[in-house]
Computed example of a mutant assay.
Amino acid sequence: MAAPAFEEIVEDFEFLEDWEDRYRYVIDRGKAMEPLAEALKVPATKVDGCASQVWLHPVIENGVFHFDGDSDAMIVRGLIAVLRALYNGVPVAEVPGIDARGELGRLGLNDHLSAQRSNGLTAMIERIRLVAAEQV
């Protein structure tokens, strides 16, 4: 079972009937995030492999993984919010073992994202896993 914040998203998705509503929900989650500070939007935090501009800023405190992120695309910003619900607050040693694709599959996202968005999502997941693995 995933983190409670992610389980909340799964439950919310069950109540949303169509994909237009689900996309709107993901976008709204992204809009609710604090924007990433401009000073953190640097090459070191930029995620390659995304069609849009994406930055992830991981922070590990007391062995617990957290990250903030931002994007110039609203749907991608929403996907960052979903990934934050999946990973934030997890012990860093457990991050590489999270089956993000499986968990996101519970939302049906794997089947409803364009190829470019799917590749970008994979790039974000790989960046998260890489950063966490470096800390273990």
Rank of each mutant, 00 (worst) to 15 (best):
M1N: 11
M1F: 07
A3H: 05
P4Q: 02
P4A: 00
A5N: 05
A5P: 00
F6D: 02
E7V: 07
E11C: 08
E11G: 09
E11S: 11
D12Y: 15
D12S: 15
F13C: 00
E14T: 04
F15H: 11
F15W: 10
F15N: 11
D18F: 06
E20D: 12
R22P: 01
Y23G: 15
R24C: 10
R24E: 10
V26G: 12
V26C: 07
I27D: 09
D28F: 09
R29Q: 10
R29L: 11
R29A: 09
K31Q: 10
A32S: 06
M33E: 11
E34H: 11
E34I: 03
P35E: 00
L36A: 12
L36H: 06
E38H: 13
E38V: 15
E38G: 05
E38P: 03
A39T: 13
L40Q: 13
L40I: 10
L40N: 15
K41D: 06
K41R: 12
V42L: 11
V42G: 15
P43Q: 03
P43S: 08
P43W: 00
A44I: 15
K46L: 14
V47Q: 00
D48S: 14
D48P: 03
D48F: 10
G49M: 09
A51C: 12
S52I: 10
S52M: 06
S52E: 09
S52D: 05
V54P: 12
W55H: 09
W55T: 10
W55Y: 10
H57A: 15
P58K: 03
P58E: 03
V59Y: 14
I60S: 08
G63R: 03
V64N: 01
F65H: 01
F65A: 03
F65W: 01
H66M: 13
F67C: 01
F67E: 03
F67H: 03
D68I: 01
G69A: 09
D70K: 08
D70Q: 09
S71A: 07
S71D: 03
D72P: 00
A73I: 06
A73T: 06
I75E: 10
V76L: 14
V76A: 15
V76Q: 12
R77Y: 07
R77D: 09
R77Q: 09
L79A: 14
A81Q: 02
L83T: 05
L83M: 06
L83H: 00
R84I: 05
A85C: 06
L86H: 09
L86G: 04
G89N: 01
G89M: 05
G89Y: 01
G89C: 06
G89L: 07
V90C: 04
P91K: 07
P91Q: 10
A93C: 04
A93K: 03
A93S: 08
E94F: 03
P96R: 01
G97H: 04
G97P: 05
I98Q: 08
I98D: 07
I98Y: 02
R101G: 12
G102Y: 03
L104E: 06
L104P: 13
L104M: 08
R106M: 07
R106A: 08
G108E: 01
G108S: 02
L109W: 12
D111Y: 15
H112P: 12
H112C: 06
S114R: 00
A115Y: 06
A115K: 09
R117A: 13
N119A: 14
G120A: 08
G120I: 02
T122F: 15
T122V: 13
A123D: 04
M124C: 11
I125N: 00
R127C: 04
I128N: 01
R129E: 04
V131R: 04
V131Q: 05
E134D: 12
